[in-house]
Design a protein around this nucleic acid. Structure first.
Length: 433
RNA sequence: GCGGUAUUGGCGAAGUGGUUAACGCACCGGAUUGUGGCUCCGGCACGCGUGGGUUCGAUUCCCACAUACCGCCCCA
């Protein structure tokens, strides 16, 4: 093979694209009911947009950025996530201005990039659908946005989900907790895994997330973030839980849940699935939370925000494992069979007429025998076959066959070309008679 | 970035240091000249990921590289 696609990328081919479109369309529909509008921002951004927002210590910045220098020596990065670019666009286009209703609610879908070792469902180029609501600190935004995410999964038909929430508190709460965590972990330093030893001072919260069994045992007795929340942070989280209860949305609180990205505070959440796609283990399929300091960090006015992102590849994996069928939209109404070269012009003309009448139509392009053409019509699941041979050509008619019933009728060409809707209704009617 | 496994036709998949690389599916053609299923017949690998090496000779042995998958890391 001479050329192959870059490592960690995928060609999404016909047969699969229908599934992608289905998810995308469903997302657009659900989001629009919540008055979210689409926003499209560049696939690549200045390196600083991400190093500034995502956090210098995060793994994304330290080792997973797909970055390079362009010919103008600009430090460019293919976006690893959606939020930072949108916040940049929000600030740059002054969407915080008074003429924009607050919160500004936007959604996006498209490719993201991370330079890491590919595995199933983890690509260097992957796709996310995400939303951001900018400009309201209200817990109702948290709850409705979470509900919207759940609504999307429900609409797609994905089951076996659970919602997990936690709070990181505001900056002061988080810092107090961070110090308490360091104080708690330091006596155990020698027992911690190597990775966690590094994390301890860089980002101690991440130790909570360690997969290492020994780490988990130590962390089990660690102080909880929930005990370090100030009054306001507690109130926010309490309201979020109350609103979820009120909507009848089930959730569990996991005080050890953290974020790889530095910009989150207050409510964070994950929607997890124990689909067969993940061997029955709970895997995160959607993650998000509140980021009240980010807009300011990027150079805008202090503006609260809330958003989430979900991975299309993982979503599709779950759908496949759960046997979720995508509605079939493009049924073939008519396959036009031409017998003999001299019918070519008529075949093209009839096919076009049927298409122009608003039906899908197809014909043979390989000069195949009638039998082969009928085979193809059958394979393409055509509802009717329109046959044009020498005799039909001479009589200015076409022969129609209902492929389901086998009934056949002969119709003037002019009728097909002028009003195919009536013609097809006629042969559909034959079915009953 | 580290470790492991894998790489044969469009797909699935046998196989051997040495004559024509099984088989199945799919696809194409044919079985009284213009009709869909089944059956039957026939066709279908620039040669076994790429590049080197060992050898009289390699798809089969060795090395490097590429890609995929699994685990770690991290995460969607």
């Amino acid at each position: 093979m001479v050329y192959q696609r870059p490592k960690g990328t995928a060609d999404i081919l016909p047969g699969d694209t229908e599934k992608w479109q289905y998810v995308e369309q469903t997302a657009r529909q659900v989001f629009s009911h919540y008055q979210f509008k689409e926003i499209r921002t560049p696939i690549f951004e200045s390196f600083d947009v991400f190093s500034r927002s995502v956090g210098d210590t995060s793994d994304i910045v330290t080792k997973e950025m797909y970055d390079f220098y362009d010919k103008g020596k600009r430090h460019i990065v293919l976006r690893p996530e959606g939020t930072a670019g949108i916040v940049r666009a929000y600030v740059e286009n002054k969407l915080f201005g008074p003429e924009h209703p607050k919160p500004v609610k936007v959604y996006y879908m498209g490719p993201m990039f991370r330079y890491e070792r590919p595995q199933s469902g983890r690509m260097r180029e992957f796709h996310q659908i995400g939303v951001e609501a900018l400009g309201s600190p209200s817990p109702t935004v948290d709850v409705e946005t979470i509900a919207m995410a759940l609504g999307l999964f429900k609409k797609i038909g994905i089951g076996g989900l659970k919602l997990v929430i936690n709070t990181l508190g505001d900056l002061a709460s988080r810092q107090a907790y961070r110090q308490a965590l360091i104080d708690f972990l330091e006596p155990h330093f020698a027992e911690l895994s190597q990775d966690s030893q590094v994390r301890l001072h860089k980002n101690p919260l991440r130790v909570l997330d360690s997969k290492d069994k020994k780490d988990q045992a130590i962390v089990a007795d660690a102080p909880s973030i929930l005990d370090f929340l100030d009054e306001e942070s507690t109130a926010h989280f309490t309201t979020v839980k109350a609103l979820l209860d009120n909507l009848g949305i089930a959730y569990e609180v996991d005080a050890t849940m953290v974020r790889g990205l530095d910009y989150y505070n207050h409510t964070i959440f994950e929607i997890m699935s124990n689909s067969k796609a993940f061997g029955g283990q709970y895997m995160t399929v959607c993650a998000g939370g509140r980021y009240n300091g980010l807009v300011e960090e990027i150079g805008g006015p202090a503006t609260p925000g809330f958003g989430f992102g979900l991975g299309l590849e993982r979503m599709l994996l779950v759908m496949a494992a759960d046997g979720i069928e995508v509605p079939n939209t493009a049924d073939l109404a008519a396959y036009v069979v031409g017998i003999g070269e001299e019918t070519q012009a008529a075949v093209v003309q009839v096919t076009q007429a049927i298409r122009n009448a608003g039906f899908t139509a197809e014909h043979d392009y390989l000069a195949r025998k009638p039998k082969a053409q009928f085979k193809m019509a059958n394979r393409l699941n055509a509802e009717v076959v329109v046959t044009i041979g020498e005799s039909e050509l001479a009589a200015k008619t076409a022969h129609l066959k209902n492929m389901a019933t086998g009934n056949e009728i002969t119709v003037p060409l002019a009728e097909i070309e002028q009003d195919f809707a009536t013609v097809i209704a006629q042969i559909r009617g034959e079915k009953r008679g």
